[in-house]
Amino acid sequence: MKETLLGMNGVIFAYLGAVLAVVLAGFGSAKGVGIAGEAATGVTAENPDKFGQTLILQLLPGTQGIYGFLIGFLVMVFAGMMPGGAMAMDLETGLRVFLACMPVGLVGYFSGVRQGRVSAAGMNIVAKHANESSKGMIYAAMVETYAILAFLISLLMVLGILL
């Protein structure tokens, strides 16, 4: 029993990891960008000139999705999921890849949503004091810190396992 389990192709876990990194972080960003976008629409409806500023604020919670996508993509490339790649991996490696994908997926989800809310609140600054809108950007970037840290750990782990 033990031997069969360890002899199993672990690439399925690498797939699972890549999928969750992309999906969870993508959910987070989609939610965050969505929340910020709703607020941005309100501001722009009042004053169409603010489109550029609100767009930048809306964009900020979008990075989590990109980080998740990057991790998923790197796993695909290095674990041979691209066309023509070799697909074999022992169970342990597969599980390690899976775990390495978790930080960016989970932190990406929660920080994406939270950052979206901060961005949405930052739209108030754009509406009331247009030339202070960078301050709203900084507040949103504070939340992003943790997505960046999670991305860094996921990235170093994936590179460490697969390179």
Binding site: I66, Y67, L152
Partner: peptide, 19 residues
């Protein structure tokens, strides 16, 4: 450490599009 993460992100995103 965010300097490294953001530096990596630029390079890796570019590589992804190139691939």
């Amino acid at each position: 450490s965010r300097i490294l993460a953001l530096g990596l992100a630029t390079g890796v995103i570019a590589q992804v599009f190139n691939i």
